[in-house]
Simulated scan of single mutants.
Amino acid sequence: MPRPRKCRRVCCLPQSSRFGPVNAKADTEKPVVMAVDEYETIRLIDLQGFTQEECSEQMNIARTTVQRIYNDARKKLADCLVNGKVLVIEGGDFKLCDGLLESCGCGGCRRHRHSGFSMGRESEKENK
């Protein structure tokens, strides 16, 4: 029997959850779906400059898990960019950061975030 999946800690949901080429026709091709935890690894490593080790501590998962998630996310981004596909960010096993941890250093959780993100989407996700 496989181990149960551990929820990954995510500081914030993306402000936009759908991306794609300007000239994309609706429903012509199935969009590439990226999980929220994959988005978080891209945000922490590529945007915030975290190492995989720092990312694993932030997300409360093993470094090897971060490496696998990050590789999967990069393949999906490459597929969208090279093949002109639409990217949708949704789903996955994650828990939103409550902002109460002193070790939270990403700047993305509600407590540390400077830019406004609609609390409605966060509350909606937490209630599911």
Rank of each mutant, 00 (worst) to 15 (best):
121 R>T: 11
24 A>R: 08
68 R>N: 14
126 E>Y: 07
109 C>E: 01
93 D>G: 09
31 P>C: 02
120 G>C: 06
75 K>V: 08
31 P>G: 02
7 C>V: 04
93 D>V: 05
128 K>N: 14
27 D>L: 14
102 E>F: 03
80 C>A: 11
60 N>S: 05
6 K>C: 12
102 E>T: 09
50 F>V: 06
12 C>K: 12
15 Q>A: 10
19 F>P: 09
121 R>F: 12
12 C>G: 09
65 T>A: 15
85 K>P: 00
11 C>L: 06
24 A>W: 03
86 V>C: 03
20 G>A: 04
29 E>Y: 13
7 C>Y: 06
70 Y>K: 07
101 L>K: 08
97 C>K: 06
3 R>H: 08
65 T>Y: 04
21 P>N: 07
1 M>D: 12
43 R>G: 04
49 G>D: 12
126 E>T: 14
21 P>L: 11
63 R>W: 06
72 D>V: 04
112 H>L: 13
127 N>Q: 14
59 M>G: 01
72 D>Y: 00
122 E>D: 15
20 G>W: 06
51 T>D: 08
106 C>M: 14
101 L>N: 07
59 M>S: 02
84 G>M: 01
24 A>V: 09
79 D>M: 07
81 L>A: 07
103 S>Q: 01
2 P>Y: 03
99 G>L: 14
14 P>K: 09
118 S>G: 15
114 H>D: 05
62 A>N: 09
36 V>P: 03
45 I>T: 07
11 C>Q: 02
27 D>N: 11
56 S>E: 10
49 G>P: 11
124 E>M: 12
12 C>P: 00
79 D>E: 14
51 T>C: 08
5 R>L: 10
56 S>V: 12
94 F>L: 04
23 N>W: 04
42 I>L: 15
70 Y>D: 15
100 L>C: 14
61 I>N: 05
84 G>K: 11
91 G>K: 00
105 G>F: 01
3 R>G: 10
60 N>R: 08
87 L>S: 05
59 M>T: 01
88 V>P: 00
92 G>C: 04
35 A>P: 00
33 V>I: 10
115 S>T: 04
61 I>Y: 01
19 F>C: 11
66 V>T: 08
84 G>Q: 11
15 Q>R: 13
23 N>Y: 02
57 E>F: 03
18 R>G: 02
8 R>D: 03
80 C>F: 01
111 R>M: 11
78 A>W: 05
37 D>T: 11
69 I>C: 08
101 L>T: 05
102 E>H: 05
55 C>T: 15
31 P>D: 04
73 A>R: 07
74 R>V: 13
44 L>K: 12
77 L>P: 00
80 C>I: 05
15 Q>C: 09
124 E>S: 13
125 K>W: 15
17 S>C: 12
21 P>Q: 08
35 A>G: 09
12 C>T: 15
127 N>H: 11
103 S>G: 03
64 T>D: 14
70 Y>V: 11
49 G>V: 10
111 R>S: 13
88 V>K: 05
121 R>I: 09
31 P>Q: 05
18 R>I: 10
48 Q>R: 15
33 V>C: 05
57 E>K: 13
28 T>Q: 15
111 R>P: 00
87 L>M: 13
11 C>P: 01
3 R>V: 07
70 Y>F: 15
117 F>Q: 04
99 G>N: 03
80 C>Y: 03
41 T>M: 04
98 D>L: 11
